[in-house]
Design a protein around this nucleic acid. Sequence first.
DNA 1: CCACAGGCCCCGACG
DNA 2: GGGCCTGTGG
Length: 710
Amino acid sequence: MIDFASELNEQQFEGVRAIDGPVLVLAGAGSGKTRMLTYKLAYLVYEVGVPPYSILAVTFTNKAAREMRQRVEQLLEVNLSNAWVGTFHSMCGKILRKSGEAIGIPRDFVIYDADDSVQLVKEVISDFGLDPRSLEPKKIAHAISALKRKLISPDEFLERAKTPAERTIAKIYARYDELLRKAKAVDFDDMISLVVRMFRTRSEIRQRYSEEFQYILVDEFQDTNESQFAFLRELTRTHQNITVVGDDDQSIYSWRGAQLRNILDFPKYYPGCKIIRLEKNYRSTAHILETASVVIAHNRMRHAKRLYTTAPAGERVKLVRAPDDYAEARYVVQRIVDLMDEGIPAGEIAVLYRINALSRLFEQELRQRGIPYVVVGGVGFYERAEIKDILAYIRLLVNPADDVSLRRIINTPRRGIGATTVQAIAELAESAGVSMYEVISSGEPLPIRPKQRKSIEAFVELIEDLKTDIDSVLPSVLIQEIVERTGYVRQLMEEDSIQARARIENIGQLVAAAQEFESQSDEPTILNFLGSVTLMTDVDRWKKGEDVVNLMTIHAAKGLEFEAVFVVGLELGVFPLTRALQDDEQLEEERRLFYVALTRAKRFATVTYTIQRSRFGSVEELGRSPFIDELPQDKLDVVDLVPEGSIVFRSVEYARSREEVYDSRYSPGIVVWHPFFGKGVVMEVRGAGERTIVTVDFPNFGRKKLVAKF
DNA sequence: CCACAGGCCCCGACG
DNA sequence: GGGCCTGTGG
Ligand SMILES: Nc1ncnc2c1ncn2[C@@H]1O[C@H](COP(=O)(O)OP(=O)(O)OP(=O)(O)O)[C@@H](O)[C@H]1O
């Protein structure tokens, strides 16, 4: 049915056939690592006869998992729905649901996302009477997350804590975990670390899974963290049939705890593993590949890799300098129009940026020119307030112990239940050792004012009503009931703003997503819906087939490919970010990010930067990214959008042509930034065009008259 | 005791 | 540009 040898090159095929023992595939971008892994899955099922449920394949996103599964189903014409293909989180979540009771995790646990975790940390901090301003909940939540990824328990951390600050964190961590367990909740990091802990304390369970998963395949191994690797090592204590593929040059998730060490040390943990290198790039033209290779060669902490292509040289990589961010967006969108005219499908075009904030102008410009597009990522769909509100209702319905969700919705929409009342309820719950919902639903009269008491009673009644058919109702129907009964949409309609309308639309999309879930799942229960939703990412919702221009961060573009790629905003402080400038390791990660961006392109790659960019309400001159200078200048096609002979905005010619921008940008009261004087406030603007004189008040240097010279 | 407006501050990538 | 906190008015 399949001729593996003709679909793969020799090295790939070698990796596919190596089914006994550990295999490490270390290879550059576009060399066919994912393809190899996909075919290996097919090979194991088809040639070796391994039952699909005996294979564990781990991918980076759910979407990648879906693609791998579909691809293999196509190849083999079989149904693979019982194979374990998914992300670490979804696989571990599944294991935890099945077997977690052994370590005291109830079957119906809910998953707290990063935002929920921060909320919970906040609660703990105020419970302890600590000052949330000096402690910064977000940072503490991060610290806890880092500890969990390193499999360090609160007790262990307390033991080794040296400074008072560390002891405080240890205390918060301990209490945080306690509250999670009380709320029958696990956070993202728990999903992995609890499974590892279970495997370590209950060897018979480990044994069972280890036997079940006869073969393990892992994609994007360079971005795994300590607990994920530990999970894999636990599973391979009886057999060592594990194949991992990755590229150290594409490790871009260190901030999430990914450790390059995992891929570099793999041979140490699996002595005698087979190491395979793939050196032929099947994705990009020679020009693009060459440019990317030159850039990444500037990194010192890496394994040099050979990567060649037999593809034609193709077009040169374009380097575009734009006077400002508006010009940049206009140029890119014009090029997109041109490419589409030449027959490149919109879906094969991507604009990639370092930070989400950069998407705005491109969206505006695309909208104005009537080109369909999609923004992948950003404030993720499932992180939007209205979506989280609705989901919090559902979570409270299935799990009354969930205090974080209760807090979120007890006064959403407004019901006259404020902070004071919530605090009172929390204290009652605390002293009685029960959940907040138990306190308010017990029927006992609460020691609060009559008005609030009435509101609370109405709220409890509402929740109880919604609860009646919770076991049988479909998720989509439940959402509609919630929206109706709570008056959520009604309130938004009354508000009648653009934002409110967008929110109503989002809720509509949530219903649609629920319906889709119902049609796909063989068990469309509320609990399963919640589980799938929390682990869903924006990339997962993204449908490439839709044939619209794609806007996304470089992180989100990992593993994808497009005919044409625009990498924008190559400026100091944006890409690389300011914080990465002082630290070699971070700077190298930024460079890897640039490498990932360039290597997404099959035929056309364009890199852009601007002289001036508006950020945080002011205009800044950031200076170009050092990465620009690392490009092979003689191989580029340089495009300068700044008028000839001018040093940009300082120039007379340029200023004259841009009076309107001038006038609107430098008006009294706005904050500006100067490379030498720093931030200042515009006091007065006189004249126009070349003679514009702006008086600016700089906190540290006093008032300066400047000839439009920022 | 709650809601809302306005001022403040800060600002990265995400399962 | 926006989330969070504070102060004020209801
Ligand atoms: N042997 C092959 N013959 C033809 N095309 C191939 C072969 N191997 C890979 N390709 C194609 O090359 C492209 C890149 O492959 P793939 O995505 O598997 O690479 P990768 O190494 O995982 O890339 P990256 O690390 O950059 O995400 C895909 O379009 C794939 O179909």
